Simulated scan of single mutants.
Amino acid sequence: MAADELAQRRDINALYTGHHDWLQRWLSRQTGCSEMAADLAQETFLRVIHKQQKDQCFSISYPRRYLRMAANSLMIDLFRRRAVEQAYQEALAQRADTCTLSLEEREIILETLQRLDRLLGQLPGPVRQAFLLSRLEGLTYAEIADQLKVSERTVKRYMQQAFVLCLDLMV
């Protein structure tokens, strides 16, 4: 084993042993669930290890601040995924016809919804709102312009931005 790899392992080991319990307690307070906190803490350290493996010069000046920010990001992602899943479950429950999906079909739908949620999260607020009004509500550009208090030309620009992002993600 190379000296660099050994030093990296020692750094990660020191980071883990020095901060894991603190991070798990912090996450437990944030989530109210010790099991979720344990999972998020482990995922946080896995991300740190992965980042260190990709970037040999990676170092952490303020470990607790860095770990808290990384864990917070993971926690937000988890809550967002759960919100999407909950909305999907509620939409299914409201359907008059009862359709049975296989577990695989359900996972594909949830994954697609989560990707859409991440995509929409990348759009600036007014662009996202215009896109959703057009695609989900079926409003015309003139109606969207009236609702958002912008010109129809601005709505066209917003929609162009949204479509460009969609195309970029398809490639």
Rank of each mutant, 00 (worst) to 15 (best):
E90S: 04
E5T: 07
R106M: 12
G125L: 11
G138W: 01
A70Q: 09
G32D: 03
S28T: 13
Q86V: 10
Y62V: 01
R68C: 02
D4K: 05
L139A: 08
T100A: 10
T31E: 07
R82E: 10
A14Q: 03
A91K: 09
E90Y: 02
A37F: 13
L74K: 10
D77C: 01
R135V: 09
I144P: 00
R29L: 15
T100S: 09
T100F: 06
R47H: 04
F163H: 06
A83M: 09
L23P: 01
E90H: 05
T112K: 04
M36P: 00
L6E: 11
T140R: 06
A145S: 13
A91Q: 14
E85F: 08
A14D: 07
L6V: 13
Y66P: 01
V84N: 02
Q52R: 15
L167K: 15
S134T: 02
Y158F: 14
Q24A: 14
V48I: 13
P63G: 03
L74P: 04
Y66E: 13
L110H: 01
L74S: 12
R68E: 04
R95L: 06
K51V: 08
F131Q: 01
G138V: 02
A142G: 08
E5Q: 06
D146C: 03
S151H: 07
E43L: 06
E85K: 15
S61F: 02
V155G: 00
H20I: 02
E137S: 06
E5P: 00
D97F: 13
N72G: 12
F131S: 05
A38K: 03
I109L: 12
K156I: 03
L165H: 08
R118H: 07
Q89T: 10
G138N: 09
G125A: 08
M159R: 01
I109M: 12
H50L: 04
A96T: 12
R153P: 04
D146K: 15
R118Q: 10
R65W: 01
L167G: 11
I49S: 05
Q42F: 06
D117R: 11
S102M: 09
L136Y: 08
Q53A: 14
L6S: 12
R80S: 14
D168R: 05
M69Y: 14
Q129S: 11
H20L: 04
L6Y: 04
F163N: 14
T112G: 08
L6R: 05
I12M: 06
P126E: 04
L120Y: 15
A145M: 07
F58M: 04
K54P: 11
R81Q: 14
G18E: 11
S34D: 11
E107I: 11
D39F: 01
A70P: 00
N72D: 09
L74R: 10
R10F: 03
V84Y: 00
M75P: 08
Q147T: 13
R68T: 06
V48Y: 00
F58H: 12
M69A: 15
L74A: 12
A70F: 01
I76W: 07
R47V: 08
D11P: 00
I108A: 09
R29K: 14
I76E: 13
S134L: 02
G18I: 06
L78M: 15
Q147N: 05
L15Y: 14
L139H: 08
Q161F: 13
